[in-house]
Design a binder for these strands. Structure first.
Lengths: 160, 160
DNA sequence: AAAGTATAGTTTGATACCAAACTAAAATGG
DNA sequence: CCATTTTAGTTTGGTATCAAACTATACTTT
């Protein structure tokens, strides 16, 4: 993250004691974490402007794109445990953004879909996310973007 | 011949009914999160083999490389809030891996350093991390590794 | 059709984290 | 000097998450 840099910047006039990161400086795992947390914080700020939570964004998008999806399918797609989804869906339903229906053919599963209000909120969130992505694009550069994205996907898919 | 068996067979290792990711598929933020969580899980498994917590690794490395570092400096370098560090340091001290000393010149700050045991555990953890990094290198490919790392650092440093 | 097994979702208990309020010590400046 | 502000670390309160145990329903096997 930029905390260390911030600090150095704040201290100004070179009086800052630089931190030795040792092997961490060169390791993918550590830098992946720092980058992920920085982008999460940034998106958090943006989505807070419209009174929403960044965690809701992927959830709403996935429901919007897959009407009738079940909670378990959704949790897998979103990379979260199904139990984490229970309170999230509860909240979205309570706020009238998501609708859940029991299937008569299988009364265990719910089918999730967006309400009209849910679609509106998703539109706002998507605008937010596009702004965020443009920032990231500016940092990464268009030349490297595609390759960078490919590598991220490859890591998700292949890391044991 | 049963639908359930068919489904199970098809689902095989986590591959479920195809989900439409919509714009998420192309967005850096989402894929960064997924990749980060995948690598974290993988390293978690590795470090659990030696009975350690992945979160401890960066902490021990930073203390080892910067003997006498304060908790605030450490938390910044590690990208965590200083309050998150309190229980971590407590645990490391209790287990005899880290030593904290008050400064007589400034009795607010602690100076942290590794004990002999702490150095031993760090050596083990580092071996673990090297194994993990080799896996990631295999996935990313040596040709792209350097550029990939640069971009991660750039994101950490520059995202608003 | 009854017994056993698998699946969808919820509950519970634990962990890691952050942000804000707090305490103690040090620095500032009037 | 004393009052104010800043700094280092802790405490408190709240959120997000996972994993395992649980409930209800559906499926399989005999």
């Amino acid at each position: 993250m930029s905390a260390a840099l911030d600090r150095r910047a704040r201290n100004g006039e070179g009086s800052a004691k630089p931190v030795n990161f040792g092997p961490l400086a060169n390791w993918i795992g550590f830098n992946l974490r720092m980058a992920q947390e920085a982008t999460f914080q940034a998106f958090s700020r943006l989505s807070l402007e419209i009174g929403e939570n960044p965690g809701r964004f992927a959830t709403l998008t996935l429901i919007g794109r897959n009407p009738g999806i079940s909670q378990t399918e959704l949790s897998h797609a979103n990379g979260r445990d199904k139990s984490s989804l229970t309170p999230v869906v509860e909240d979205l339903v309570r706020r009238g953004l998501v609708q859940r229906k029991r299937l008569s053919s299988d009364r265990r599963t719910y089918r999730l879909s967006l309400t009209t209000d849910g679609k509106k909120v998703l539109t706002q969130l998507t605008r937010c996310a596009r702004r965020h992505e443009r920032n990231l694009d500016r940092i990464i550069g268009l030349r490297d973007r595609k390759r960078f994205l490919q590598i991220l996907k490859k890591i998700s898919a292949e890391v044991e």
